[in-house]
């Protein structure tokens, strides 16, 4: 189990201090595949580097099974880094070394004999499906294969936690899928806790069971993936879950708007907007719409513009709220503070 308590990281730059992380509190249970998602600059990379103390946090603590990493000296920390390993967006393999040498590097560093390390290295290459690439150099491999070698390397020291820093961001969708499958396999078979840092909602959707949304260094939302997806509360979450919505909303900041999120299967049988037009006399226009499947459930999403004044808005909201399986959020002005209906 990993606990982040009040984690704060401030960088001093030429333009004054920059808060990369602000009082982050998270608990990641053993065996979780935990997603940490946010836009570029949200502090994801800093957060993941604080977990293995590549960046020392300015304030707060990181606890691995109750042991405070921040209080450890360099030697103890090096020991812990065999338990918390990491893979990266750029794979970061040694380009002048064969795949096998890359995989055995952490073992050699920890003092294992060459023959033993190479035996273990071959097992690991087998596990990631690249036993025939032992003597190939990384430049001869595709991106997906390089990431597999990096995963084998990360697993070499039998870690407890695997940190994935945008591990699939440089890969095409098909390869991303294959790598995520591998990570899920590793999580299931070896019981390794996985922390996935990403800006892609699809990655979280595919493998994570819990997710935290990071914005400007703060956790704005946290919970079960299905829960967060079906009912995104924070703006940042909505922008990530339905990025196409954010664009259409920004283009026109006026008018009274209603966001509705509903179970897609029910929506297909229910002409909701037509019923509203007939029953309430309100002809809402659709600014944008989208569907997402989370786990085995489908979720629909719509952004509506309600014509008229506050009375019409109230009527529309009341009508929508009476419909089962629909959650309604009102935005009178995009720039103004949002009110939950």
């Amino acid at each position: 189990m990993i606990e982040l308590k009040n984690l704060t990281k401030t960088f001093t730059t030429a333009d004054g201090p920059v808060d990369a992380l602000k009082h982050v509190n998270l608990t990641i249970n053993g065996g979780d595949i935990y997603g940490i998602i946010g836009m570029s600059g949200a502090g994801k990379s800093t957060l993941v580097r604080c977990i293995n103390m590549l960046e020392r946090p300015t304030e707060g603590s990181v606890l691995l099974d109750g042991r405070n990493l921040g209080a450890m000296n360099e030697k103890q920390l090096r020991e812990v880094r065999h338990r918390i390993t990491m893979i990266f967006q750029g794979f970061n393999l040694l380009m002048q070394r064969t795949c096998l040498k890359n995989v055995t590097l952490p073992l050699r560093i920890s003092g294992m004999k060459k023959a033993e390390a190479e035996k273990r290295g071959m097992e690991l290459l087998n596990m990631v499906g690249l036993p025939d690439k032992a003597n190939a150099y990384p430049a001869q491999l595709s991106g997906g294969q390089q990431q597999r070698v990096a995963i084998a390397r990360a697993l070499a020291t039998d870690p407890q936690v695997l940190l994935c820093d945008e591990a699939t961001s440089a890969l095409d969708p098909k390869t991303t899928h294959a790598i995520l499958e591998l990570i899920r396999d590793i999580n299931r078979k070896l019981g390794i806790t996985v922390i996935v840092i990403t800006h892609q909602m699809s990655v979280v959707q595919e493998i994570c069971n819990r997710v935290a949304i990071l914005e400007h260094g703060e956790v704005v939302e946290e919970g079960e993936v299905s829960e967060v997806f079906s009912n995104p509360r924070a703006d940042a979450t909505r922008n990530l879950v339905y990025p196409e919505m954010a664009d259409s909303a920004i283009s026109d900041k006026h008018g009274q708007r209603v966001r509705i999120i509903f179970n897609g299967a029910i929506a297909a049988k229910d002409p909701l907007l037509a019923r509203m037009a007939i029953k309430c006399g309100i002809a809402a226009s659709i600014i944008g719409a989208s569907t997402r499947s989370v786990g085995d459930k489908a979720y629909g999403y719509m952004l509506l513009e309600i014509p008229g004044g506050p009375n019409e808005l109230a009527t529309a909201v009341n009508f929508l709220r009476e419909t089962p399986n629909v959650s309604v959020q009102v935005e009178v002005d995009y720039a103004a503070k949002e009110v939950d209906a």
């Binding site: 293995n52 090096r78 880094r81 065999h82 990266f88 040694l94 952490p106 560093i109 020291t157």
Partner: peptide
Amino acid sequence: PNIIETAQSMGATPVQILLHV
């Protein structure tokens, strides 16, 4: 520099980073 950071994340000592990486 990312490769150096990777070696640090593996728990390599500075001397090991110089010689092995």
